[in-house]
């Protein structure tokens, strides 16, 4: 009965939503023109990167703060640190993972650099770094993180701190995150480099902190 009720409710909701989507918006604002007309002052050539780090940089600043918060809550939630037993390691997988890791780091740096003028950027680069760490963990080369060392803590917060420092540094010149057009490209690259390292460590940490609890201690 409840199933039927919720199911039909969701179906009605979907039909109404699609009906609303198909109606043309009266007097819609076209942001594409606004973005295109400010691209020259943004310091980068790829519009998505310009929106992420310049026009709507505030969103990205809050996003890295949210990610940091998620890791802190996971650590505070206190999964019991398990005894670290080495996983059954397959030597072929291990040597393949060893071979794959350096190119993955190169790909991450390329994505970071390419973000200025084509699809790519800090998020994708950070995701590739995190994937490399997860791969090393799954092949038994990297133990799960029991508790964060000091260098790891600094690495995870570096992206947020650099971004915040740049943002407040620019406050002296008038407004939060309003880059001067001449230095915008360099500042965005600096912020993105910090974001890449921190995002890689945070996303890897989400996996490596959670996987320290293998679940079979009983």
């Amino acid at each position: 009965m409840r199933r039927l009720l919720v199911g039909s409710g969701a179906a009605v909701f979907a039909v109404l939503l699609i009906g609303a989507l198909l109606e043309p918006l009266p007097g819609g604002i076209d942001l594409r023109i606004a973005v295109a007309s400010h691209m020259a002052a943004s310091g980068v050539e790829h519009p998505v990167t310009a929106v992420l780090l310049n026009f709507r940089g505030y969103d990205t600043l809050l996003e890295i703060a949210v990610l940091l918060l998620a890791v802190i809550v996971i650590l505070a939630g206190g999964l019991d640190p398990a005894v670290d037993r080495p996983r059954a390691a397959n030597p072929i997988l291990q040597s393949l993972a060893r071979l794959a890791t350096p190119p993955m780091i190169v790909v991450a740096v390329y994505l970071l650099w390419a973000g200025a003028f084509r699809p790519g950027g800090a998020f994708q680069a950070g995701a590739v770094l995190a994937a490399a760490a997860v791969l090393l963990h799954l092949t038994g080369l990297l133990p799960s993180w029991q508790r964060p060392a000091l260098s790891l803590r600094w690495g995870m917060t570096a992206g947020f701190l650099i971004f915040l420092a740049v943002a407040t540094g620019l406050l002296a010149q008038g407004a939060l995150l309003r880059y001067p057009p001449a230095q915008a490209g360099l500042l965005i690259l600096l912020v993105e480099a910090g974001l890449t390292v921190s995002l890689g460590l945070i996303l890897a940490g989400l996996f490596l902190f959670l996987s320290r609890d293998p679940g079979d201690e009983e």
Binding site: D30, V35, L52, E63, V66, L67, A70, L206, F207, L210
Partner: peptide, 29 residues
């Protein structure tokens, strides 16, 4: 394509994975 919603969704995907990891941590706890 409009770059503004694309950037918003890119942010959203990263926040969604953080929320998923947090929910999984709570479930495991």
């Amino acid at each position: 394509p409009d770059p503004v919603p694309q950037a918003m969704v890119l942010t959203g995907i990263v926040v969604a994975v953080a929320a998923t990891a947090l929910a999984l941590a709570l479930t495991r706890r």
